[in-house]
């Protein structure tokens, strides 16, 4: 299994009556695309942060490609994210001072991939997300949908084992959102990553192979 979560729990504050996440167990294989639904404040982003190693659980384990995140320090988890994970956020987080091509190429640079391999991968991704002719554009010249496409291409540039998407269509209108969701699923499947989509939208969740619901801290 690429992503394996066992009995994960997380509580905020010593006086919290109930934990945000209780005894979560989940497995996602490579090539699988799952959705986790829940209302606002259900703990979806918290779960995603724990999977990404951006936060530590109170109990339980998270394994990425067999590596227990709990055994790694911050540098170790950061390097694991660099090599094995990609992220797509609601807020895009496209660096405003880098062109579209350079934004997409950033994970390649972080992983030391250069030369012909990097050139080919960049061209492939820009074409896949339909932005080959906008490679030199600044992010400020793009629409919301285009920026999210950039984010998707960037998230997959280094062929991560895991793709995490947190409300990727939260800022997009329905028509654009639909195309972005389709693109996201297709690229995850094409690259054979384990994709986890977090959303409160049933429409978005419907694009996944499996849908989980996070409610009262539990996953069902």
């Amino acid at each position: 299994m690429t992503v394996e979560i066992r009995n994960l729990s997380r509580r905020f504050g010593r006086d919290a009556e109930r934990p945000v996440l209780q005894d979560i167990t989940l497995q996602v294989a490579s090539g699988e695309y799952v959705a986790i639904m829940g209302e606002s404040g259900a703990g979806k982003s918290t779960l995603l942060n724990l999977i990404a190693g951006l936060d530590r659980p109170d109990s339980g384990t998270v394994l990425i490609d067999g590596v227990d995140l709990g055994t790694l320090d911050d540098d170790g988890r950061t390097l694991l994210r660099r090599r094995r994970m990609g992220f797509v956020f609601q807020a895009f987080h496209v660096l405003p001072y880098l062109s579209v091509a350079r934004n997409v190429a950033l994970p390649l640079a972080l992983n030391g991939i250069s030369g012909a391999a990097a050139d080919f991968r960049l061209g492939e991704l820009l074409a896949a997300v339909g932005l080959a002719d906008r490679a030199d554009s600044a992010p400020g010249e793009l629409s919301g949908g285009e920026m999210q496409r950039v984010a998707i291409a960037r998230a997959l540039a280094h062929r991560p084992a895991v793709l995490l998407a947190d409300e990727p269509t939260g800022n997009l209108d329905p028509r654009i959102a639909s195309s972005v969701l389709t693109l996201l699923r297709d690229q995850v499947k094409h690259d054979g990553a384990a994709g986890i989509l977090v959303t409160h939208s049933a429409t978005a969740a419907a694009t996944a192979d499996r849908v989980y619901v996070l409610e009262n801290g539990r996953l069902r």
């Binding site: 640079a109 250069s114 990097a118 080919f120 074409a127 896949a128």
Partner: peptide, 12 residues
């Protein structure tokens, strides 16, 4: 779609 061809990337 098929790749549009290699795109030069700057050194890491």
């Amino acid at each position: 779609t098929a790749p549009a061809g290699p795109r030069p990337t700057p050194a890491p």
